[in-house]
Amino acid sequence: MAEEPGVVNPAVRVRGLTRLYGTRTVLDGIDLDMARGEFIALLGHSGSGKSTLLRALTGLDHDTSGHGELRVPDRRAVVFQDARLLPWKRVAANVTLGMRDTDARRRGQQALDEVGLSAHARAWPGRLSGGEQQRAALARALIRNPELLLADEPFGALDALTRLQMHALLRTLHARHRPAILMVTHDVDEAVLLADRVLLLDRGRITLDRTIGMPSPRDPATPAFADHRTAFLTALGISPQDRQQNTSGTKN
């Protein structure tokens, strides 16, 4: 059989991935290649199967059936929408949870430094603000040196201002550590602002796949940005009139 087109030595390779809940097909033949260090954002309506795809890549989908080829790196890390820190462990212990290396403590401190939380290493997670908790969750993911970082609406629960700071932090961390990132988001602007490539998932199929190709940091006011935004909003079924009423994009 002939070699299929795709990235050479990709970080993630998915072919014909199907997932069903009971008899309901949620993912319907997904093909996806992710290059090493590539940042992909995944857009799609609620219920389109974004979380299901992410869970399949994480290996957390015990309750689904299906088939397809799925090749992912061993070193994976997940960031959830809620920071999901264990309330009975201090921040530093949360970051190094389950790590057995001898220098886990030092590396934990280093990871907290990177996300600007070194002062809170000894705090209980319940004392942190929402943004700080999510930064601790980022540190917990990064310390594992992931080749693939999976994030399901990681900033969905944050206020707009905190979200902007988190965007900058995520860009910095991605530039420094170069993991492949697959980030689910509802926010078209967030997707176009951060990702190298943006995918649209519609009823279990990838229906739009655009490489953004603009230098970072990006300016949402540029025509190229507006072009990508329009393409995705149109594909999502948002008409130009709908957009008129909410000029700042999809941010609430």
């Binding site: 994480t58 994976r76 890390a77 997940v78 959830f80 809620d82 999901r84 264990l86 389950g98 917990r140």
Partner: peptide
């Protein structure tokens, strides 16, 4: 949710 976290961290 904590079970899912533990699985994702490979505990």
């Amino acid at each position: 949710r904590y079970v899912e976290l533990a699985e994702s961290l490979g505990l």
